[in-house]
Design a protein around this nucleic acid. Structure first.
Lengths: 336, 336
DNA sequence: CTGTTAGCGCATTCAC
DNA sequence: GTGAATGCGCTAACAG
């Protein structure tokens, strides 16, 4: 079923049908009615790709995330997809995994699909390989990176002040009279390094010594939340062994904090009485666990919506700024 | 950058370039080398949509789910996307929401994108509106429905025997010497009605009376997991009020069970000592809460992989069957 | 107001 | 082996 089929049935030319479909002016009302009726009855639907070929507009945007199973990524994708769909764009979403080369491959697929814009979710998309891939494959289309930076003329950033937020988390623990703080850090992405910086700053300011000495890493590549939890558990063991005096633990993600919590509880260490616990992400997990988890709300939903809006503005070249910063909020629950 | 640009640079015709790109035979090796080199250097990438216009193959498939934020949906989408991408297909995923009309709209978008196949995740896609939309907009492409049925010549089903699984859950509770069972049921989707059927069968068989009389509904349209948890909490109150003797609760989803757990704990009712709790979905939530949640693993990952494979088989018309059934497994954890 | 023509980027005949 | 011509479904520019 093409516009030609409709045109034949209606006894008009294909252009007339096209005009009706696209609500172009300059058509006699009677003709429009007649064609529209046929259009409705025949169940015709335009081929958007064919249209895109001539209008040079795919109406696609690409969304890249490392792993959609991570709950705050999911939230981001949800919000962005709703907003972009509302504006007539179709989202192509890929879970790229952690490997930068793999990320570059997906960028090539997005080029093949002629996306009009891209949203990268996560600071690890600021890697050099990604930048090169963008420069090579998508040098012309606006690219918004969420919670990260990309030094490219077509790149935009929506940032979250997690460094400051982490300082606020430390402040919370200090208010709870904790003095032997530990920091449990996930893979050293730029975002996580910012949080570490915040932790160190706050520790120093409080006269609690070198933050890095109180930091334990939870190494691992698997982005699955279950794997994250397991890593948190392992890292908790390390904290307890190396820093037995610890009375407060700050985790760079909620998933790690959950693992941590499980390890503490299995050892009958009371949370928050013996050790207070704070996570980051404001994920559902923090509401599901018991005690509920104090966490840093990094406003992923707002940030994602802003990034979608920023992309839409960039399409109309009316983006006010290439860089946007949003602020976090500490959510105090039972674990602190 | 088109094949014509490459052709000009190479001093050959566009057809030759096309042949090189598609690895067609009948090209002198020296020519192929020369063109390939230019292809690589220039950073040319074919426009898949333009190709699709002539080959009549979009290499798109559509995935429809109600809400990607629901953790087992997310898992499904992840698995399907990985598998389809591996086979050269690009997935277009939409969160449709609960409204059947909205679902129909998304099906129309999929038609506009000329998807070659569709995967519907969830039994609520078996609704009449959806069937009509498929019949109208996508009568020719294979449609796989996960955990549901669609009476259409181009439809395939991958089912999970949750009815039997629910019976197994009741058996678990009986083994734990529970006799006053309640069933907490989410919105009456076909899948949830199957579970209810399983509950009733098992209750009757055990001589515990009419299952329906022991069933409480958690009404609500919001598919967000946080909303589900809240609904579970409300429903738990109702159970405690109407059936104060209850010593075991089976919930049709983990999220509801989490809400239930929270309400019980807030009333100092011990789980599992006073009331045992079992969910369905084997979601991360069940590992995050405390006590950890016994649950029915409905093998969403396997089911999703099977549905992707089924679709791929249908593309090559070598699908062995239109209907596939997989089996569940009870996972016993601390809550029972 | 409407039809004719051309061309988007590509693969595929059919000649040569 | 390779090129010229054609058409996929559609919109846009230009006639009329």
């Amino acid at each position: 079923m093409t516009i030609y089929d409709i045109a034949k049935k209606a006894g008009v030319s294909a252009s007339t049908v096209s005009r009706v479909i696209n609500n172009k002016p300059g058509i006699r009302e009677s003709t429009r009615k007649r064609v529209q009726k046929l259009l409705d009855e025949s169940g015709y639907t335009p081929d958007i790709s064919a249209r895109g070929l001539v209008t040079q507009a795919s109406r696609f945007i690409g969304i890249l995330i490392e792993d959609i199973r991570v709950s705050h990524h999911t939230e981001s994708v949800y919000v962005i997809e709703q907003e972009m769909t509302r504006h007539g764009y179709t989202c192509i979403t890929f879970s790229t995994g952690a490997d930068p080369c793999q990320k570059a491959k997906y960028i090539e697929i997005l080029e093949q699909r002629r996306v009009e814009g891209v949203i990268l979710i996560g600071s690890m998309f600021g890697a050099d390989e990604v930048r090169n891939a963008i420069r090579r494959h998508l040098p012309e289309v606006p690219v918004v990176i969420v919670n990260g930076m990309l030094d490219l003329p077509n790149a935009y950033s929506v940032l979250i002040d997690e460094e400051r937020g982490t300082e606020d988390c430390v402040a919370l623990l200090l208010r709870k009279n904790r003095r032997y703080l530990a920091y449990l850090m996930d893979v050293p992405t730029p975002a996580n390094l910012h949080k570490l910086q915040g932790f160190c700053t706050a520790m120093q300011r409080a006269g609690l010594g070198d933050g890095k000495a109180h930091t334990v890493y939870a190494p691992g590549m698997d982005t699955n939340p279950i794997a994250s939890i397991a890593r948190g558990r392992e890292a908790a063991k390390e904290i307890l062994q190396k820093m037995p005096d610890t009375d407060g633990i700050l985790c760079s993600t909620d998933a790690l904090a959950i693992g941590c919590l499980q390890e503490l509880q299995s050892r009958k260490i009371r949370v928050p009485e013996d050790i207070a616990l704070v996570g980051v992400d404001n994920s559902v997990y923090g509401l599901v666990c018991s005690p509920t988890l104090s966490t840093l709300d990094n406003k992923l939903a707002e940030v994602s919506l802003s990034s979608a809006r920023l992309l839409l503005d960039a399409f109309e070249q009316k983006a006010l700024s290439r860089k946007l910063m949003l602020f976090t909020e500490v959510i105090e629950r039972e674990s602190s």
